[in-house]
């Protein structure tokens, strides 16, 4: 007996649409529409982590505060810096670095860690990325409390023009330019999404990538001006520019860090950081969309 419903069977499409940009964009768009889902899951992740602890998510803030205080104290002395401006510098740097670190390390495992969900519930792959990035943003928000405390404590020093040891420029201090931190942060998050998408897809296929990134990222921390600042590089050339500045300039993370950090500390900021970040946004998203186009449908096979 022939099954009745085969009567109105349409002809097969000429080419499957699995590997098209339309599907890649569709994935991102659908994921964005499901923000109630990943928004909820991101919160859940944080609540989950501290479910049985007494002070809960406050631990995030406490550990950040302790680290920033200790590193700020140590490095201001090692580098001969004024504590009142260097401690806030280290604090903000470390808060932003923590976001970047979280996105890169968890981004590589974003699909691997969600294997169960990917194999059992149909959803755009970008949902898992947005959930992870949202979780990191929430961590960032918790850590921002440390910045506020530091800001209050060192308010007099930070609102006056100040100079950091080794710098040629004088920083104007915190003014209205602090609002520039907002678009900078948005750019940072927009970049976080493509980083997680691209690295997530590659890592799902090549499982050697996460361990490589994990060991490499430690090195990046020391190479990035977080517990030191670029002025120090020129300390022994009497403030004159030298090749040493390239140590920072060739590090993309430095530029991302700088656009968020400088406004928050009222530091003099060069426009070229924004250009570099803008270029990374465009190139990165192009690569991520290309990866999404070609390998979006493979993720569920690879996990």
């Amino acid at each position: 007996m022939q099954h009745t419903s085969t009567v109105d069977r349409p002809a097969a499409p000429l080419a499957p649409d699995s590997r098209t940009f339309a599907r890649a964009f569709g994935d991102v768009r659908d994921a964005w529409r499901q923000r109630e889902l990943w928004g909820h899951l991101g919160w859940q992740d944080i609540k989950q982590r501290y479910r049985r602890s007494v002070i809960g998510p406050l631990w995030i803030t406490i550990s950040m505060g302790t680290t920033a205080l200790a590193l700020g104290l140590l490095y201001s002395q090692l580098l001969g810096q004024e504590l009142s401006t260097f401690l806030p510098y280290v604090t903000v740097g470390f808060i932003v670095w923590n976001l970047i670190l979280g996105v890169v390390t968890e981004g590589t495992e974003v699909f691997i860690a969600n294997e169960g969900l990917i194999k059992h519930l149909p959803a755009p792959v970008t949902v898992h990325v947005l959930r992870m990035v949202w979780r990191q943003v929430l961590f960032f928000a918790h850590n921002l409390a440390v910045y506020v405390v530091v800001l209050i404590v060192f308010f007099p020093a930070l609102t006056e023009p100040y100079k950091m040891e080794g710098d040629t420029v004088t920083h104007p201090g915190i003014t209205w330019t602090v609002v520039l931190a907002l678009p900078a942060f948005v750019l940072l998050v927009v970049n976080a999404v493509w980083v997680a998408l691209l690295f997530g897809i590659i890592s799902t296929r090549f499982r050697d990538i996460p361990p490589v990134i994990h060991s490499f990222i430690q090195l990046v921390f020391f190479m990035t001006p977080i517990v030191w600042h670029v002025g120090v590089l020129n300390k022994f050339t009497d403030g004159e520019a030298s090749w040493k500045i390239l140590i920072a300039e060739f590090n993309p993370i430095f530029h991302f860090l700088e656009i968020v950090r400088a406004p928050l500390l009222g530091q003099q900021q060069d426009w070229h950081h924004w250009v570099v970040v803008g270029a990374f946004t465009v190139v990165g998203w192009s690569l991520a969309l290309l990866a999404l186009r070609n390998y979006r449908a493979r993720v569920s096979y690879w996990v």
Partner: peptide, 26 residues
């Protein structure tokens, strides 16, 4: 369910899909 897209051939699923595959997941 659309979780696996065919490696060869094609598929089209229209409608809101609700699967119960593994009860522990999700």
């Amino acid at each position: 369910a659309g979780i696996y897209e065919p490696t060869r051939g094609s598929s089209r699923i229209q409608g809101k899909v609700a699967p119960i595959f593994d009860l522990g997941v999700g």
